[in-house]
């Protein structure tokens, strides 16, 4: 099966559960005492989609968004962006629209946008109606799901929906991609049988 590497970046206010969603997806676990993001920078997971393997290279923000200092490098070459809000905090849904705007301005032109309304396990303190969010997502042609990183609801589905939206390999083929720098083979491969 053909392997495709897909860069995905996460956006959204602090505390909405971005890192928790990735952690659930990649490690299938949840840590209620997770730190505000420092440390985790890069996570990967491969899932089959039709006759391909999709290897998600997931970039978590590194806190640079807190004072609006996110570097454009963060969106560069992203196939998809997941914008997360917290269904129990209306203001996180309102700022979501700014993230969409920022992506349209600085992100790649054909980026797949997915909106995740996280913490849906906290239904009794909900501030954002599912329908309002769904209508908004439809209006910008974005994937939409309500998720719970805590109870593992719709996390895999979120990524499956993203996979479905990604154009098949040949369609988006760009001419001559670059390569990653590696240690010289003599430096890494000098290992005894």
């Amino acid at each position: 099966m053909a392997l495709r590497e897909l860069k995905v970046c996460l956006l959204g206010d602090t505390g909405v559960g971005k890192s928790s969603i990735v952690w659930r997806f990649v490690e299938d676990s949840f840590d209620p005492n997770i730190n505000p993001t420092i440390g985790a920078s890069f996570m990967t997971k491969t899932v089959p989609h039709q006759n391909e393997l999709h290897k998600f290279l997931i970039w978590d923000t590194a806190g640079q968004e807190r004072f609006r200092a996110l570097a454009p490098m963060y969106y560069r070459g992203s196939t998809a962006a997941i914008i997360v809000y917290d269904i129990t905090k209306e203001e996180t849904f309102l700022t979501l629209k700014n993230w969409v705007k920022e992506l349209r301005q600085h992100g790649p032109p054909n980026i797949v946008v997915a909106i995740a309304g996280n913490k849906c396990d906290l239904n009794d303190v909900r501030e954002v109606l599912e329908k309002d969010a769904k209508d908004y997502a439809d209006s910008i042609n974005a994937v939409f799901v309500e998720t719970s990183a805590k109870n593992a609801i719709n996390i895999n589905e979120l990524f499956i929906e993203i996979s479905k939206r990604i154009p098949s390999a040949n369609a988006g083929a760009t001419s001559g991609k670059g390569f990653k720098l590696r240690r010289q083979s003599s430096e890494v491969e000098r290992r005894c049988c």
């Binding site: 440390g39 920078s41 640079q64 807190r66 570097a71 490098m73 963060y74």
Partner: peptide, 20 residues
């Protein structure tokens, strides 16, 4: 992209970033 890459490294290790 080079300064941005090292800035991200710094941020991952707790560096605080402010532009403007």
């Amino acid at each position: 992209e080079l300064p941005q890459g090292f800035a991200r490294l710094s941020a991952i290790y707790g560096g605080t970033y402010m532009l403007n």
